[in-house]
């Protein structure tokens, strides 16, 4: 904190003390004008943040130690009971597995597709702006709308997917994509990946534009083939972008809720529940508020661990 912009707090007051001297200077008056402005500027944001974000975050932990239906004035303290119940809850297992599929497979798929597209579009000159505009578009649309549109694509009787499969003679593969408990979660994930490629594509494209052309030419002159150039010249210069995109996608996939809620509400037979949707269902549909809070704490802890690990990784790669 060497760059203290404000004059030191002990600086003499700019104006002489008010005549009469009856009023003792309050704590705020003793601050410099800059510090007083800062306090006034921070106050509204901090109050809102405390009441609606920080205190609820702490309360989540507190609620998770209780059994409560959301209505009864009395909350029963059960200690770690809710967490022990999680262990025996088959649906928690399903939602944890699905969340890990979203975070693992979803992140990997978005990453690979975005990188592939960025490499293809690299150096397309004026056309690039058009591709970027189109690829990024799903990213700005409401997830609800994406869910509805993909619900149409997967529709068993008039969806594009089944019609397309029939048209190329693969009609036997056609099915109700969102009605099959083994497939539904992957079908929804595909829609989510589709909608989240745009941002990764933009970041990768920006990074590719910074790849040193001199190094590439030098490698070419030295006889490195395309694959070698990709592996040894391009990839090392993209490492920062890769960790950045990965951490963004991880956070995005942990928070997934809308897409599942719109397309299946966690069904069929709860096969598409994520921790987020299962939390919502417990807390707001089944009146298991304490249990829902325990689920949300689990999500928070996993999310924070992963985020912190990736922030560390990013710091390390940026030092190289």
């Amino acid at each position: 904190m060497s760059r203290t912009a404000a004059p030191p707090a002990a600086a003499p007051p700019r104006r002489p003390a008010p005549a009469g001297g009856a009023r003792r200077p309050g704590p705020l008056r003793r601050l410099s004008p800059a510090a007083r402005l800062a306090a006034a500027f921070l106050a509204p944001a901090i109050v809102l943040y405390l009441v609606f974000v920080l205190i609820p975050l702490v309360q989540s932990v507190w609620l998770s130690l209780h059994e409560w239906d959301g209505v009864n004035p009395v909350k029963t303290f059960v200690g770690l009971g809710n967490y022990l119940d999680l262990m025996d809850d088959r649906l928690f297992g399903v939602s944890l597995r699905n969340t890990l599929i979203w975070v693992g497979l979803g992140t990997a798929a978005s990453l690979a597709l975005a990188l592939g597209l960025a490499l293809l579009a690299w150096g397309t000159g004026r056309g690039f702006a058009v591709f970027r505009t189109l690829y990024f578009m799903p990213q700005v649309l409401p997830t609800v709308v994406v869910g509805i549109v993909w619900g149409w694509i997967y529709h068993p009787s008039f969806g594009v997917l089944n019609k397309g499969l029939e048209a190329v003679g693969l009609g036997s593969l056609a099915r109700g994509w969102l009605g099959d408990p083994d497939i539904a979660v992957y079908a929804i994930l595909a829609a989510s990946v589709w909608a989240s490629i745009g941002l990764s594509f933009v970041i990768f494209s920006a990074a590719l534009n910074n790849v040193s052309a001199e190094l590439l030419d030098a490698a070419k002159v030295d006889g490195a083939n395309a694959l070698q150039r990709f592996r040894h010249v391009i990839v090392p210069q993209l490492s920062h972008a890769v960790t950045l995109v990965t951490s963004l996608l991880l956070i995005h996939n942990f928070q997934a809720f809308d897409m599942v809620w719109v397309m299946t509400r966690g069904g069929p037979q709860n096969s598409t529940q994520l921790i987020a949707t299962y939390t919502y269902q417990n807390a707001f549909a089944d009146n298991q508020v304490g249990y829902g809070a325990a689920l949300s704490v689990v999500l928070t802890v996993i999310c924070l661990i992963v985020t912190v690990v990736f922030v560390r990784l990013r710091e390390r790669t940026s030092e190289v």
Partner: peptide, 29 residues
């Protein structure tokens, strides 16, 4: 404007709000 230990701590607390998913706070909220 004011870079002291207090504002540094406030910024860290605010970063926490950037990182946690909404589902983590929605029930008490």
């Amino acid at each position: 404007l004011v870079r002291t230990r207090v504002t540094g701590l406030l910024f860290v607390l605010i970063l926490l709000g950037v990182m946690v998913p909404f589902q983590s706070i929605m029930i008490p909220q």
